[in-house]
Design a protein around this nucleic acid. Structure first.
Lengths: 220, 220
DNA sequence: TAACTATTCAATAATTTAATTGAATAGTAG
DNA sequence: CTACTATTCAATTAAATTATTGAATAGTTA
């Protein structure tokens, strides 16, 4: 009958959305784009894949409106369409990180590999910042910081950290964050800071995780 | 290098989760299972597909822990593993409904087809129930009601509605809900009630949508 | 224990998908 | 208007996915 056929079609359309992120490279693309818009060339470097293939993956994502484009001079800049994309990816990660043992193992390996000893979450940060003075530093590239960052964070890209140590206090705990749980820039930053006798700790969550958390707090 | 390889592997595992719901039949299965657990046979009828194929789809869903099984007598009952699955599907739908013009068109057709003239949301219901007396009826099959329902709702399965009209008040607005936006049982109920001169209106959201909404209200 | 039943497995064929290479295109900047 | 450049298109091949059928399996009931 007509009704069930329409129902079928709706499910087909919905599954086109999930199909778009059912490929690891496309998942990675969306995750990179969660930070800020990037050109095809930049993205192809980031995910280690030919420009032509990257372009085709991006077109799949675009066809279901997960990403959108905008020209900037010679470049075409891809970015995610809106926060509903972030929520989708976050829901996938939540399920994966919690339920798939293999992912837990991989993340464990990842941390071990990178000597990530200790880290806190956003909630920990909030609690900590009420009890003691902390300094929050964002060690991502500056343009990602400019595209959005956690309030009160100071931008000190990892590449500049060594030269800018004098900006940092010895009497406060320094909290470093970057792109999220799979990013190691904050771990490297903390390692360097420890060598230089600062009190520093890594925060696993990044700006995106912070932003999503904010949205769950109602406005009243 | 090793590090990027682990990251790669995490994305690969994550994309297995989305791959599992990248097929329209599997999406439909999850959606049906969002209401309550069902046997393979029941599910195969629901999605209009052979038992063997249904079983194989279910195994894909199970392999990424979207569903789990439990034996009940001769039957194996599949159910979703937990609420993180609901949140994932909800995120997909949010994106699908908002972003894909095709779906909007389809839902438009769907509604026109079914004469779904008017509907309210959960928020509307809450507001309405403070201003006037309303009666909330759940027109899904009784076992789905028993598996979980919106507080204060009364179970009147669509199949029994005609016989049970005398239980309904003429002086209150009757709000009918079923499985959610893609389900037409509540629309059919409202149509019947209008014929019988009741004041009735359909609520698009179902129990699952209500439940997820509750979770976003923090506990303080 | 035997018969029965719901579910899963296995093999197949048609369809999709993915990554690559090299050519084509559209748009910018000089 | 020309040259240049970032991106997309097209064709190809290998691999993966889907739905089906019929056989096999585990588990239950009598």
């Amino acid at each position: 009958m007509a009704a069930s056929s329409i129902k079928e079609q709706v499910y087909q359309e919905l599954s086109r959305v999930t199909h778009a992120i059912s490929n690891s490279k496309r998942m990675e693309l969306i995750d990179v784009l969660s930070q800020k818009g990037y050109s095809v060339e930049e993205l192809s470097k980031e995910i280690a894949m030919s420009i032509a293939s990257t372009s085709q993956h991006l077109q799949v994502l675009k066809s279901v409106k997960l990403v959108e484009t905008q020209r900037q001079g010679n470049f075409i800049i891809y970015s995610i369409t809106d926060d509903s994309v972030l929520r989708l990816i976050s829901a996938v990660k939540e399920l994966g990180y919690r339920k798939i043992a293999e992912i837990e193992r991989l993340i464990g390996d990842f941390k071990a590999d990178k000597n990530i000893l200790e880290s806190i979450t956003i909630d920990d940060l909030m609690a900590k910042s009420k009890k003691e003075k902390v300094m929050l530093i964002d060690v991502r590239p500056e343009d990602e910081f400019n595209a959005g960052h956690i309030p009160n964070a100071v931008s000190i890209p990892l590449s500049q950290l060594k030269k800018r140590l004098k900006e940092l206090p010895k009497n406060k705990t320094i909290i470093a964050y970057c792109r999220g749980p799979l990013c190691i820039m904050s771990a490297d930053a903390v390692k360097l800071l420890h060598q230089k006798k600062f009190k520093a700790i890594r925060m696993e969550d990044g700006f995106v995780e912070w932003k999503l958390k904010q949205q769950n707090i109602p406005k009243n």
